[in-house]
């Protein structure tokens, strides 16, 4: 494992850590985006574990802080947040290209990181794959049936629900950082377009996303044929929480990511 920290970007405002494999044999680099407001090491150091494991598998990686997050500053540009994210991702790709010769890239993002990965994957031709952790999904009729029916029929769950509501009502001063989802038709269209361009897509949902996702088949309920496309993989780690606080869940997630990359975008192939 060989890591080096860089200050980089069009305004030298970004901070990130490039990790290199023992030997460079391919042209695919993996870029890990911030999860919410957590700096680049990720929740419970998930991104450090992830990038080092991928380095050991032969992938150059970059975990970095987007503008104004973690240790990165502002670029002083007058742009929307969406434009800034795309420009920061372009800077990240330029750095990984310069340091490891990468020409094709896979993005990994959790929560708001998945939203940002989606945004960049929509527009940048160098992206060949993306791993969305608790990314877009929408409540469907099936979701509601699976969610509410067992609760209505089980008095213990009704009690637990009421207890939770009471508990959450007491947490009035805790800030909530939500991610606004665009209309499902837009996201479906984006995904279809990515697949037409040849991207490989991996969606992983955790039990922590249970407020909007509760079964594997929900993906197809949301996105139709995208859900059965051969270049799409969907997993549901129901036991895990949103940020993978337990080591056993992190290990499971990393196994899944490594396996998916090996099968779909092997480190040693060139294009």
């Amino acid at each position: 494992m060989q890591e080096h920290a860089y200050r980089f970007g069009r305004a030298k405002h970004l901070v990130g850590m490039v990790g290199l494999p023992p030997s460079l044999s391919g042209n695919i680099g993996v870029i890990v985006l911030n999860a919410g407001l957590v700096h680049r090491i990720g929740p419970f150091r998930l991104h450090v574990e992830m990038t080092r494991r991928l380095n050991a598998c032969g992938y150059p990686t970059l975990r970095f802080d987007l503008s104004t997050l973690g240790d990165s500053g502002a670029s002083s540009e007058s742009q929307s947040r969406e434009q800034l994210v795309c420009a920061d991702a372009a800077d990240a790709m330029a750095l990984l290209s310069e340091r490891a010769g990468c020409t094709r890239f896979v993005l990994i993002g959790l929560c708001s990181g998945a939203v940002n990965a989606h945004r960049v994957a929509c527009t940048d031709a160098r992206i060949v794959g993306a791993i969305f952790l608790d990314g877009y999904a929408y409540r469907t009729l099936g979701y509601r049936v699976r969610h509410y029916l067992p609760r209505i029929l089980n008095p213990a769950r009704v009690f637990r629900f009421l207890t939770r509501r009471l508990h959450s009502a007491q947490q009035v001063d805790a800030p909530v950082f939500g991610v606004d989802f665009p209309p499902v038709t837009q996201v479906r269209g984006d995904l279809q377009d990515m697949l037409r361009r040849g991207l490989k897509l991996c969606f992983v949902y955790s039990g922590g996303a249970s407020k909007y996702f509760n079964h594997l088949r929900q993906f197809r309920e949301c996105f139709g044929r995208v859900g059965t496309h051969p270049d799409v993989s969907v997993s549901f780690l129901k036991e895990a929480d949103h940020t993978y606080i337990l080591a056993v869940d992190r290990a499971h997630l990393l196994d899944l990511i490594e396996g998916w990359l090996h099968r779909n975008l092997p480190a040693s192939t060139s294009a």
Binding site: F44, R164, H167, S168, G208, E239, D241, I245, A247, V248
Partner: peptide, 24 residues
């Protein structure tokens, strides 16, 4: 954490939470 049903959809086993402190 083992019985934190706000974080987890169901309680976790003792083995799952052993040897760690809050994510580490």
């Amino acid at each position: 954490l083992q019985h934190d049903t706000i974080r987890f959809t169901r309680p976790r086993t003792s083995e799952d939470i052993a040897g760690q402190w809050l994510g580490f």
